[in-house]
């Protein structure tokens, strides 16, 4: 019994590391109009991981449905950009990324987290 509990706990730790740090959600692609709608609700951005075209302008349209003040702002790390999200109203930001890579965005408390995966899209 003790051995089983210990083993289970070790497996759990490995699973936490794998699921939250080593594995990532599948990135959602943008449409041909280079615009994607992101729902802000229940502690998550949906979609949270988005594939965006490199060196081309694209638009993120946020729809905030969570009245919690935590969800009110979205910060784009490394881009020095932020956006205020009014409740139940679309808020858009146009971005263009010149370097390939993953760019995080989050609420001010870092509870809502998402990322933009910038890559050449053929």
């Amino acid at each position: 019994m003790t051995l089983a509990v210990n083993l289970l706990a070790v497996v759990l730790i490995v699973a936490i590391i794998w699921w939250f740090w080593l594995s990532t959600a599948t990135a959602r692609s943008m449409g041909s109009n280079r615009l994607i709608e992101i729902q802000v609700e229940n502690g998550v951005y949906s979609p949270a991981r988005i594939e965006v075209p490199l060196k081309q302008p694209f638009t993120l349209r946020f729809i905030r449905k969570d009245a919690s003040p935590c969800a009110e702002k979205v910060f784009f790390e490394g881009l020095d950009k932020s956006l205020l999200l009014p409740l139940e109203e679309p808020a858009e930001i146009e971005l263009s990324l010149s370097t390939a890579g993953e760019y995080a965005f989050s609420c001010e408390m870092k509870m809502y987290q998402g990322s933009l995966l910038a890559k050449e899209i053929i």
């Binding site: 939250f20 229940n42 949906s46």
Partner: peptide, 19 residues
């Protein structure tokens, strides 16, 4: 319920938060 919904949705996104 909002804590549980938030936690589950965050989990599906490979994310963990206060919820």
């Amino acid at each position: 319920a909002h804590f549980y919904t938030g936690a589950w949705k965050a989990f599906k996104n490979h994310n963990a938060n206060m919820d």
